[in-house]
Design a protein around this nucleic acid. Sequence first.
RNA 1: CGGGGCGUAGCGCAGCCUGGUAGCGCAACUGCUUUGGGAGCAGUAGGUCGCAGGUUCAAAUCCUGCCGCCCCGACCA
Length: 567
Amino acid sequence: MRISAFHLTTQREVPADAEIVSHQLMLRTGMIRKLTSGIYTWTPLGLKVLRKVEQVVREEMDASGSLEMLMPSVQPAELWQESGRWDDFGPLLLKMADRAGREFAFGPTHEEVITEFARAEVRSYKQLPICFYQIQTKFRDEIRPRFGVMRAREFLMKDGYSFHVDEECLGRFYQVMFDTYTRIFERLGLEFKAVEADSGAIGGAVSHEFHVLADSGEDQIAHVPDGSFAANVERAEAVAVGERAEPTEKLRLVDTPDAKTIAELVEQFDVPIEKTVKTLVVEASRSSGQELIALLIRGDHELNAVKAEKHPDVASPLRMATEEEIRAVIDAGPGSLGPFRLTIPCIADRQVALMSDFVCGGNIDGKHYFGLNWVRDVAVPKTADLRSVVAGDPAPDGSGELALLRGIEVGHIFQLGRKYSEAMNAVVMDENGRAVHPAMGCYGIGVSRIVASAIEQNHDEAGILWPEPMAPFDVVLLPLNGHKSHRVRELAEKFYDQLRAAGLDVLMDDRNQRPGVMFADAELIGIPHQLVIGDRGLDKGIVEYRQRGGENQEIPINEAVEFLKQA
RNA sequence: CGGGGCGUAGCGCAGCCUGGUAGCGCAACUGCUUUGGGAGCAGUAGGUCGCAGGUUCAAAUCCUGCCGCCCCGACCA
């Protein structure tokens, strides 16, 4: 491609409303343009990258035996009502109506459509196992779209769905997909980690996420360095450490008028934060027969909402009680609550149940208990894993100490089981002639998000450093002052033809720009290999090879094409 | 959804407080010069000042409403 025939619109200035590096660089290189909040146009440059990612995904999915297809993006409401997700999916679902008033959703995912397809098409166990996939635009009406295509409302996703007669077959195929995903991210040249995950709104039991590691990642990962354990912090089990010590302090009620938070308590009363307990009041589940329930967490720990809302006594989704609701049942407000003489039920984090001589709110405004002890002063409540792990916690599998990393979720695989095949009554005949609901797996990759995450992980002051498999071009030719020098121009043209003939994706900077502009643009858009052709080098019989982010070297003219083929 | 901020040329911004000819830098276009790290000079083009209403002789500027975009929050006791 010649730049003169391309649409290259780089910008020197950083766009004001782009917060993270990938968003800034995607705008500065001109890869994307915002149409409206969370909705982007992919320009020819950006689309080249997107297509390269797509192609790697497609090749590996095909190699796994999965079959590509294309499902509609607009889906009838009935299908979603059948699965129960028309309401469950909530405001994330973009709904619309046709001229007759029939309701539709723009697909945020395709479990319903594929299940509808499978129940019509797949009748016999002999057709199983089978896995269909597509690469398609999805729409999720995110609460707050941000970071460009990283958390966009409209995005490109690869989604695959497999069907199996039994769980055992699903488990085997799940491993095939795990390996396929591993190969995809390896081939793309990304530093990533597969972690145990919560299955969230999609449903199902076993689930893994694939994260591109980057400091700007929105997810936290707990893992044992050089160990086998890795899990999303949402899910990583927090193991209680130690044993409960005998009481040594007397229980006393202390005036704490200015201590509404754990931080204030620690500062004003010189109490170690590990000796404090915070009491969070949340809505209780219907099945518990209660209105509110208190959750006890050690002062330096954080409540894990994903874990809490899975508890049978806690309402899902988790909702914190308002001050009015709390005051209606307890004689104190937030900031002065605790388990002693508490008028509502409570659940303690496992670690809290092992504490002794601790400090907590007094259930009287402006007062805290010091020296509180389980058993002696108050019965040990129900316990559960309610907190998020922190660095240094033991791994739940005993393999070592946990460290935390930040990641960008780019892939997620699930063993769904029969949630959709049962809800939508998809059945196949098994070898005994019985109708059974097939077990399903589902496998997603955020194709557009991969592009952004690759930039987050691979950039410098000058711009993007694309991993080669996803670079928009393999090599850029920079003929310096080509409009003045015939021999520079002619050599560049010769290289252009020869490199293209060798199967390389070549960009020729034929703009007659000053050298500084050409270098800056080549670096900004991150092309891995540059070949600089200038009179200065030609006098010495060489051209200059530059690897993006690497070393420069001089190459004899007649070896250049071969050199680039190898590089 | 709650809080905050911002809407002026493709991008980044000033002007608004104190009403009176709409400006700067980058980008774009033309010409000349320049040419190994985002050139110089001269010129050109580009604006419903987010939209609507109001106040006023006069509104980018003051008032009201609406719309859009961005940031923070929605784990806080």
